[in-house]
Each structure stands twice: as C-alpha cells, then as structure tokens.
C-alpha cells in the first residue's frame, strides 16, 4: 500500500527485457576463424530469440559452397570466372585461418584441438544456423564476379543485393561486418 501505483512497474519491465530484436551480419571474409565468430554470434542471437540475417559477399561466399560439387551442366562462365571459382576454397571446411594457416596445416591443427574441446566446426554451425531459421543471403553481384553459380551453393538460402541488406539493417539493432 505504501508503494505508489506508478512505482509498481515489474510487469512492464519484463516486457521491455524480452522484446524481440534483430541482428544483421555481413560476412565478407573467407577466413575459417572469422567465419566461426560470425556463425557463433548468429547462432547465439537466434538462441536468444533474435531474428538474424547474414549477408554473404565476396570471400564469405566460399562458406556457402556445397561439399559436393554439382556434376554436369555446362557453365557459361568466362575463363577468368572459372579461374576464380577454381582457386576459391571448395567449401566451408576448406577455408584457411586468418593467422598461422601455413597452407592448411594450421587449420588442420586447430580443427584437431577444436574436436578434442568439443567446439563446433563451421559446417556444424551452418547447419545449426539453418535449423534455427537464420536467414542467409548470398550477394549476387559477388557471385557473378567470382563465377559462383546458385547450384554450387547450399539449399535454403536467398539471393539478393545491397538494397535487401540495407532494408534488413534498418530494422536491426546490431550490425557487424566480419
């Protein structure tokens, strides 16, 4: 009775705390460690009931490549586009580290430690992200530049450009460039 009614705000406070929000992440880098960071943040946010959109551009697109390269189908890529496609990491688990990669030996050693410490690999983080309904968008402009076609990329992703990303970023309260 001593508490004035306007001080009794507990029911409103709970509403504020649990407000849903949105996170957007631009994945530009194709480094294995940076990719882990991006997907751990994305999965963590989704586990906290946030809506998450990841926009993959340039080297980041390598993470979305299928483990199995599609067979057949003649591509209309130019020689240079094919060259880029051939030099890029084949899929997420072939990405190099940003430091101490040593032509893949560093990544091999880090993955060994990760396995013993039960740390999720990028491939596992990607499938968890898909289970959690994280929206993944591939930048079509960089796909053209790097000679990556839609059938080379994993299923369940969207294709769009900068305006789509900016529209999503407008609604988000955290935006990262990784």
């Amino acid at each position: 009775m001593l508490t004035p009614p306007w001080r009794n705000t507990s029911q409103y406070q709970r509403k504020q705390v649990t407000k849903m929000s949105k996170k957007t992440i631009i994945v530009f880098s194709g480094d294995y460690d940076r990719m882990m960071a991006a997907f751990i943040i994305a999965n963590g946010a989704a586990a906290m009931d946030d809506e998450v959109t990841m926009f993959f551009t340039f080297w980041g697109l390598s993470a979305l490549r299928k483990q199995q390269k599609p067979v057949g189908g003649k591509s209309d890529n130019s020689f240079l586009q094919n060259m880029f496609g051939g030099m890029l990491p084949k899929h997420a688990e072939k990405l190099g580290l940003s430091k101490f990669n040593f032509g893949g030996a560093g990544r091999f050693m880090m993955k060994k430690v990760m396995k013993s410490e039960n740390v999720m690999t990028v491939a596992e983080l990607i499938s968890t992200a898909q289970e959690q309904g994280i929206k993944m968008i591939a930048c079509t402009m960089s796909m053209d530049v790097l000679g990556i076609s839609k059938d080379e990329l994993i299923d369940g992703i969207e294709y769009a450009g900068v305006a789509t990303y900016l529209g999503e970023a407008d609604e988000s309260n955290v935006n990262l460039f990784i």
Binding site: I40, N43, G44, A47, M48, E117, N118, V119, M120
Partner: peptide, 11 residues
C-alpha cells in the same frame, strides 16, 4: 560442449 552449445541446448 563449448560456446554456444549450452545456450543452444537451453533454447
């Protein structure tokens, strides 16, 4: 399991 495993499991 390591981060973010526990919160994924909780969710």
């Amino acid at each position: 399991v390591s981060c973010p495993g526990p919160i994924l499991a909780a969710k």
